[in-house]
Design a protein around this nucleic acid. Structure first.
Ligand SMILES: [Mn+2]
Ligand SMILES: [Mn+2]
Ligand SMILES: [Zn+2]
Ligand SMILES: [Zn+2]
Lengths: 138, 138
DNA sequence: ACTCTAATTTAGAATCATTATAAATTAATA
DNA sequence: TATTAATTTATAATGATTCTAAATTAGAGT
């Protein structure tokens, strides 16, 4: 129930002081069982609901950007208008449901080996991500 | 050398009248041998160079959006800040060189079969795209 | 506990990409 | 050529993100 110490540790490890605003953001982000995919806008409305005093948008952006830079969040770009963040920081893939605008994780183990036959010389691979766009087939 | 009729046909097929502005945009987009990956901003500077009279940004956006909607261009999102368009409209994949901010095509045939083991019920797949981020290994 | 200082928060402004508006121009048709 | 609808354009509006600078707060030292 009280994971505050975990959040404080996470913030500290990112070089951030554990202020009450940042701890509240961590609660909303990480105090859940499943992966959380969110846009900044959605996070802001969630914070407004779950919080007595509001957190400024500058603090929300700064905190999310710092956590992302330190690897506690991943950034998932669907298109120019939809920038998501993801509490699942493992190497994994996504379904994007165009009907609901929702992201769904595909674990790395749920994808067969990806075989890129094209050679690339003088470059090193940083990440490989598959995005599968789907729609409800009603 | 003179592909104007092809461009006119392409525009007409998209329900667009072949104005001189739109034909010039098509020339810059399609009068080339290799795939063209571009941002709107880069396209605007190219048009300024290659064109005597300037084309307004509204016309550039409108034309690119119309061509994209009709399937003559694809949209490739790398992240919130980098929205690319692509003259290669086949199903294919990309390297993104983070050092140079360049996109490089990976043909569908250069990727082994993609096996998604995770079931999805009640949904149909619209597209599957792999993005491989790389960096120069200087 | 109190002081001090640097870090943080905040409201608001600035920036950048994209879209909307509405007046002037142009293309297609009669 | 005249008519009309489509198009272009400058400019404004919007929305997401970042910047700024003043007010507040956290943590270290006393
Ligand atoms: Mn778009
Ligand atoms: Mn970003
Ligand atoms: Zn995910
Ligand atoms: Zn491509």
């Amino acid at each position: 129930m009280n994971n505050n110490n975990i959040f404080i540790e996470k913030l500290r490890s990112a070089g951030l002081r554990p202020t009450k605003q940042r701890i509240k953001i961590c609660k909303v982000l990480f105090d859940r069982k499943k992966t959380f995919h969110f846009t900044i806008n959605y996070l802001k409305t969630l914070l407004q609901k779950k919080t007595d005093q509001k957190i400024s948008q500058a603090t929300v952006y700064n905190t999310i950007n710092a956590l992302t830079k330190k690897g506690h969040l991943k950034e998932i770009s669907i298109n120019c208008e939809k920038n998501y963040f993801d509490t699942n920081i493992s190497s994994h893939h996504h379904f994007f449901n165009e009907s609901t605008q929702e992201l769904i994780d595909i674990d790395d183990s749920d994808i067969g080996k990806i075989n890129i036959k094209k050679p690339l010389t003088g470059k090193k691979i940083k990440s490989i991500e598959i995005l599968v766009k789907v729609a409800n087939s009603n």
